[in-house]
C-alpha cells in the first residue's frame, strides 16, 4: 500500500521536475524574447517579474505537494495500524499481547 502511495508521490515529483527542467532548459528563449518587449520589465530581461512569477508557481506547487505528502504519510500510518489490527484478529485477542 505504502509502495503505491510512494509511487503516486514519485510521479508527482517527476512531473514537477520535468516542468522545472523545461523552464530552465529548453524554454527560456521565448520568455527572454517576451521579457525584452515587456514595458514593466525595467531590468530588460529576466528581472524581478520573471523571478516573482517563478517563485509564485514554485511556492504554489510546493504547498500542494506538501499536502499530498502529508496525506500519504497519514495513509501509511493508518495502514500500519490496520496491519496490527489484522494480525491481532488472526492470532486471536491473546496472541497480540
Amino acid at each position: 500500500m505504502s509502495r503505491r502511495g510512494g509511487g503516486f508521490a514519485g510521479v508527482f515529483a517527476l512531473g514537477i521536475a520535468l516542468v522545472a527542467l523545461l523552464g530552465f532548459g529548453g524554454g527560456v528563449e521565448p520568455l527572454l524574447a517576451q521579457a525584452a518587449d515587456d514595458p514593466l520589465g525595467r531590468s530588460g530581461g529576466l528581472g524581478r517579474p520573471y523571478l516573482f512569477v517563478f517563485l509564485a508557481y514554485a511556492i504554489g506547487w510546493l504547498l500542494i505537494f506538501g499536502w499530498v505528502i502529508s496525506i500519504f504519510r497519514r495513509l501509511r500510518g493508518v495502514e500500519a495500524r490496520m496491519a496490527s489490527v489484522e494480525a491481532e484478529h488472526e492470532g486471536g485477542p491473546d496472541a497480540a499481547r
Partner: peptide, 11 residues
C-alpha cells in the same frame, strides 16, 4: 504576455 503588466500578470 499581457501588454500593460508584462510577465508578472502570469501569476
Amino acid at each position: 504576455t499581457e501588454a500593460v503588466q508584462g510577465i508578472i500578470q502570469r501569476i
